[in-house]
């Protein structure tokens, strides 16, 4: 399955939830915000939200800024 992750193409080997993807990327869920097709996914829905073919996923976090 192919998705767009943070602007880049990515292939997922198996059906994944948002939580699966974060684990694969070694990201701590509490430190990021996930947008799926421009909709923010609430953390308590990471496990139950599946990523589908062609989905656009943005994973965002705070960085230094002024």
């Amino acid at each position: 399955m192919n998705i767009t992750l943070n602007g880049n193409n990515k292939s997922l080997q198996k059906k994944s939830s948002v939580l699966d993807l974060l684990k694969d990327l070694q990201l701590t869920p509490e430190t990021v915000v996930v947008e799926l097709n421009t909709t923010i996914i609430q953390p308590d829905s990471y496990d139950s939200t599946d990523i589908g073919e062609g989905d656009q996923v943005e994973i965002i976090r705070f960085v230094g800024g002024g």
Binding site: N6, L25, T31, E58, I59, I60, R61, F62, V63, G66
Partner: peptide, 28 residues
């Protein structure tokens, strides 16, 4: 304290500013 939002650098998943800032009582 001001902070910005950017796409996570997927090559450096542990690079998290909020961890660096700790649990201090700032208004972000």
């Amino acid at each position: 304290i001001t902070v910005a939002l950017r796409r996570v650098d997927l090559e450096n998943p542990d690079d998290d500013i909020m961890t660096a800032l700790g649990q201090r009582e700032y208004t972000f």
